[in-house]
Simulated assay, not measured.
Amino acid sequence: MDSLEKVQEQRYDNFEKTSNEMTVGDWLITMLILIIPIVNIVMLFIWGFGNPDPRRNYARASLIWMAICIVLMLIFYGVVFAFIFSSFNSY
C-alpha cells in the first residue's frame, strides 16, 4: 500500500512541475503582443501549433474566429459589390 501512495505522490509532483500556469503579468504581455499588427498573427500560429504552451487553446480559438470573420467579410463584400455592379448595369 505504501508503494501505491508513493507512486501517486510522484505523479502529483510531476503534474505540478509540468503544468505551467500563467500569471497575470504573463497574460498582460500576451495581450500586449496581440495588439501589434502582423506580429499577433505570427505569434498566434507559434503558440497554437508550436511547442506545448499554456496559450495553445486560446491561440487556436483566436485563429478559428479570425478565419470565420474573414469568410463572413468576403461574403458580405461580395454581396455588396454584386448589388452595386448589378445596379450600374441596369441603366
Results as ranks from 00 to 15, higher is better:
Ser3Glu: 13
Leu74Arg: 08
Arg56Ile: 01
Ile70Trp: 08
Val71Asn: 01
Phe45Arg: 11
Ile33Phe: 06
Asp13Cys: 12
Pro54His: 04
Ala82Asn: 11
Ser90Asn: 07
Val39Met: 08
Ile38Glu: 09
Asp2Leu: 09
Thr23Leu: 05
Trp47Gln: 05
Tyr58Leu: 05
Asn89Val: 00
Phe15Leu: 15
Val24Leu: 14
Gln10Phe: 04
Tyr77Ala: 02
Ile68Cys: 06
Phe83Asn: 08
Ala61Arg: 12
Leu4His: 12
Asn57Gln: 13
Ile29Lys: 13
Leu44Pro: 02
Tyr58Gln: 07
Arg56Asp: 00
Trp65Thr: 06
Phe76Val: 00
Val79Gln: 06
Ser87Lys: 10
Leu28Trp: 11
Leu4Asn: 13
Val71Phe: 00
Ala61Tyr: 02
Leu74Gln: 10
Phe45Asn: 12
Thr18Val: 14
Thr30Glu: 13
Ile41Glu: 06
Lys17Arg: 15
Pro52Ala: 00
Gln8Asn: 14
Ser3Leu: 11
Ile41Arg: 10
Ala61Gln: 12
Gly48Glu: 03
Ile33Arg: 09
Arg60Pro: 06
Leu34Tyr: 04
Arg60Asp: 03
Leu4Gly: 11
Phe88Arg: 05
Asp26Val: 06
Tyr77Asp: 09
Ile29Asp: 10
Gly78Ile: 00
Trp65Asn: 08
Ile29Asn: 12
Asn89Thr: 01
Met73Ala: 03
Met1Pro: 14
Ser90Val: 05
Ser62Arg: 13
Val39Asn: 04
Gln10Arg: 15
Leu72Gly: 01
Asp26His: 11
Asn89Tyr: 04
Asn14Lys: 15
Leu32Asn: 13
Leu63Ser: 03
Lys17Met: 09
Ser86Val: 00
Gln8Ala: 14
Ala82Met: 07
Leu44Cys: 02
Glu21Asp: 14
Gln8Thr: 10
Phe15Thr: 15
Ser87Asn: 10
Pro37Lys: 08
Ile38Ser: 11
Thr18Asn: 12
Trp27Gln: 14
Glu16Met: 15
Lys6Val: 11
Ser86Lys: 07
Met66Cys: 07
Met31Trp: 14
Gly50Gln: 02
Leu4Asp: 13
Leu4Pro: 07
Met66Gln: 08
Val42Glu: 04
Pro54Trp: 00
Ala61Leu: 07
Thr18Asp: 10
Pro54Asp: 06
Asp13Lys: 15
Asn20Phe: 06
Arg55Lys: 11
Gly78Cys: 01
Ile64Met: 05
Tyr58Ala: 06
Phe88His: 06
Phe81Pro: 02
Val42Asn: 05
Gly25Glu: 14
Trp65Ile: 03
Ala59Leu: 00
Thr23Arg: 08
Ile38Gln: 10
Ser62Asp: 06
Asn51Arg: 10
Arg56Cys: 00
Leu63Val: 00
Ile64Ala: 04
Phe83Leu: 07
Ser3His: 13
Leu72Thr: 02
Glu16Cys: 15
Trp27Met: 15
Met43Phe: 07
Ile36Pro: 07
Val7Asp: 07
Ala61Met: 09
Trp65Leu: 05
Met73Ile: 01
Ile35Leu: 12
Arg11Ser: 11
Leu74Pro: 01
Asn40Leu: 03
Leu28Gln: 14
Ile41His: 06
Leu4Cys: 09
Asp26Gln: 12
Leu32Arg: 14
Leu32His: 11
Leu4Tyr: 10
Lys6Gln: 11
Arg56Trp: 03
Asp2Cys: 09
Ala59Asn: 04
Thr23Asp: 05
Ile33Asp: 05
Lys17Glu: 12
Ile35Cys: 13
Ala67Cys: 06
Leu28Asp: 13
Leu44Phe: 01
Arg55Tyr: 04
Ile35Tyr: 10
Ile84Ser: 04
Leu34Asp: 08
